[in-house]
Computed example of a mutant assay.
Amino acid sequence: MTLALKGIVYSSFAGLATTIGGIPFLLWRKKVNRKTLDMLLGFAAGVMLAATAFSLVVPSIEIGGPVRFVIGFFLGAVFVYLMDKFSPHEHLIKGYEGPLSHAKVSKIWLFVIAITLHNFPEGMAVGVGAFSKEALVIAVAIGIQNIPEGAAVSASLTGAGYKAGTTFLITLLTGVVEIIGGIFGALLMVIARPLLPYAMAFAGGAMLYVISDEVIPETHSGGYELLSTYSLIFGFILMTLLDNMLG
């Protein structure tokens, strides 16, 4: 299997893991409480944080040195910031964000835009990571965190009154976005392999920005800060151990 094909296959498996979290909500249509949502998102944040640190940041520095890491990491964070600032989108808990002039866009489409903004870097990380020795670790990390993330997405949409089919379709879309990101990352490496340390750092910076600016603040705004913090710690520990075993 070529490295590019590996990146696409890995990102497909990782991305579609979101549907595993969404499947229960096809049958169980009750509203999920905020405590459960914060726990799920906290765990996902911990897994993402460990994957960012050990599977993207460290390899980027090892491959390209500190200067390339700093440049790529900073650009990744700035990229997500600019997309957040200028693209209208809807968050699971925080609600609408972006230019006020676009606030009347359909809520479903605003949610889809948010998914695209935040999940594309995850898919890109898998696609780019296929060209490093961390390929399997990154794919497993993204796949694991996508399960509770998919559950949180489905639970939120179910609670908002969306039909089962619509809920599952949007949850599936979160995975499709990551597959697209994986294809982009893999093809980028085929065209310009020397960009690997920059690209890994870019994906890491983008993911860390999402964790810090979106996920953690959302899980700390509903009164369950301690639970979400321990969930994050558990996710971080689990991914760190898996990284050690798989690496």
Rank of each mutant, 00 (worst) to 15 (best):
T219E: 01
G204P: 07
L227F: 08
V153H: 08
I138N: 03
L169N: 04
T219P: 02
Y224G: 01
A45P: 08
H89T: 03
P197V: 13
G205P: 04
V67I: 14
D243E: 08
I63A: 11
V80L: 14
V105W: 06
H118C: 04
R29K: 13
F25A: 04
I71Y: 11
G182V: 04
V47E: 11
M1G: 13
K104W: 11
T174E: 08
L238G: 01
D213C: 02
W28T: 03
S12E: 06
T174V: 00
L16F: 15
H89E: 01
L173C: 02
I108Y: 00
G159P: 05
K30I: 01
V67D: 08
V126G: 06
V140P: 12
A152Q: 10
V153F: 07
G175S: 11
L232W: 12
I211M: 09
L157V: 10
E178T: 07
P197I: 09
A44Q: 10
E225W: 00
E214W: 05
K31A: 12
A14F: 05
K94C: 00
E214C: 07
Y96N: 03
L56G: 02
S60K: 03
I113V: 15
G247I: 08
V70Q: 06
V57L: 07
S231Y: 07
I63V: 12
I180Y: 06
K6F: 03
I179A: 06
F73D: 03
S87D: 01
L241I: 15
L16G: 10
A152W: 06
T166H: 09
L241C: 07
R29N: 12
G65A: 09
Y224F: 13
A103S: 15
G161M: 01
M200D: 02
A130W: 06
G129F: 08
G7E: 03
L49I: 13
T240G: 15
A125G: 08
T229E: 08
L226D: 09
G222N: 15
G165H: 06
I183D: 00
L5T: 10
E178R: 04
P148H: 08
P66H: 05
A44G: 08
E178S: 13
L173H: 05
T240E: 05
A151W: 12
L226S: 10
